[in-house]
């Protein structure tokens, strides 16, 4: 196998890992604050649809992105209402959000565009295009490093770089700021935050909203960066895979990057059965390849990769004790 093939697979890995990374960091903020979010899938889907629809209508991918974020935020608001204000079951709320997004996107897309639940194909300014980093063209001919810089590091859409920047940013916010300290505290022992005179509800809403913004990016990237438009159920379980990556990463930002890159790599491989067959020298069924990320998710959840301790107050609505 040559360098070009490896670079192609890795390049695809980065692209496919990007929505996972956004979603994983989104889940990280929510779960570190004690709100379990199984509705990442639905938020991404809502954002994917709205960003594609608005980008198609306005011709501007930036307006599309904003609309996508608004869409994911409104789903977050529902989740916040159910799990923070009304202290409902966070899992059920997440499931409801996933179905709501799955149904609404198709119903609205169908009545809006009449294309069988899709949005029109996006082109030009309605899509995120790859950008070439400075010097990439010039260095392209340098052996080994040139192609790596040109193919792998340069040439992605702006959102890929935003996702990567979100990793150190998330770390910094969580570990170095007052907000981060309080956020982590509210996920471990909300009573400690409450008795310190800080509103548990406000903190958790803030976390859930950050989660909304990040899933908004994830969905918008899917529909306007990775692909050129929305198709039904286009998230294809990425929200759940991001959750598995989050557990794998033990709720830490840098580990989340590596975990999502691993899943991205698997997805990239499943697109290139020829590579796998070339390496393994066996016939691999394409269905097995499709199922591979899901199987790995189960393996990771089974804890065969080390035990993960989730935030202690996760999933529990906060009720002042009597």
């Amino acid at each position: 196998m040559d360098l070009a093939t490896i670079l192609q697979v890795l390049d695809t890995t980065v692209r496919l890992a990007t929505p996972l990374l956004f979603a994983c960091l989104a889940g990280l903020f929510s779960e570190r604050a004690g709100i379990v979010d199984i509705g990442l899938e639905g938020k991404m889907l809502a954002a994917a649809f709205l960003s594609a629809a608005i980008a198609a209508v306005t011709g501007s991918v930036w307006i599309g992105l904003s609309a996508g974020i608004v869409g994911a935020l409104s789903m977050s608001a529902i989740h916040g209402l159910a799990s923070i204000t009304f202290r409902g079951n966070q899992l059920i709320s997440g499931v409801a959000i996933n179905f709501l997004a799955q149904g609404l996107t198709v119903v609205i897309a169908q009545s809006w565009f009449n294309q069988g639940g899709r949005t029109p194909a996006l082109a030009g300014g309605a899509r995120f295009h790859s950008i070439t980093l400075p010097g990439a063209e010039a260095l392209r001919e340098v052996p080994v490093l040139g192609p790596i810089y040109y193919e792998l590091i340069s040439g992605h859409s702006i959102l890929v770089y935003v996702a990567l920047l979100c990793v150190p940013l998330s770390w910094w916010v969580l570990q170095r700021t007052r907000f981060g300290l309080r956020l982590r505290a509210v996920g471990e022992n909300p009573a400690a935050v409450d008795t310190a005179g800080v509103s548990v509800e406000r903190l958790r809403y803030a976390a859930v909203m950050i989660c909304g913004v990040l899933t908004g990016f994830a969905g918008a990237y899917l529909a306007t960066g990775l692909q050129a438009g929305f198709v039904r159920d286009m998230t294809a379980g990425r929200g759940y895979i991001a959750l598995a990556a989050l557990i794998f990463a033990k709720w830490r930002p840098w580990a989340a990057l590596w975990a999502t890159l691993l899943f991205g790599f698997l997805q990239a491989l499943s697109l290139r059965p020829d590579v796998l067959e070339g390496v393994l020298r066996i016939d691999v069924s394409s269905q097995l390849l499709d199922a591979l990320p899901y199987i790995l998710t189960v393996v990771i959840l089974a804890g065969f990769v080390g035990r993960a301790i989730p935030p202690r107050a996760g999933g529990e609505p906060y009720v002042k004790e009597r």
Partner: peptide, 19 residues
């Protein structure tokens, strides 16, 4: 797909927003 929306709303109101 409207049925999926209704299904979601039923789950939301009877399950998550029970309170």
């Amino acid at each position: 797909d409207m049925v999926v929306v209704i299904q979601a709303l039923v789950i939301l109101f009877t399950g998550a927003l029970d309170n």
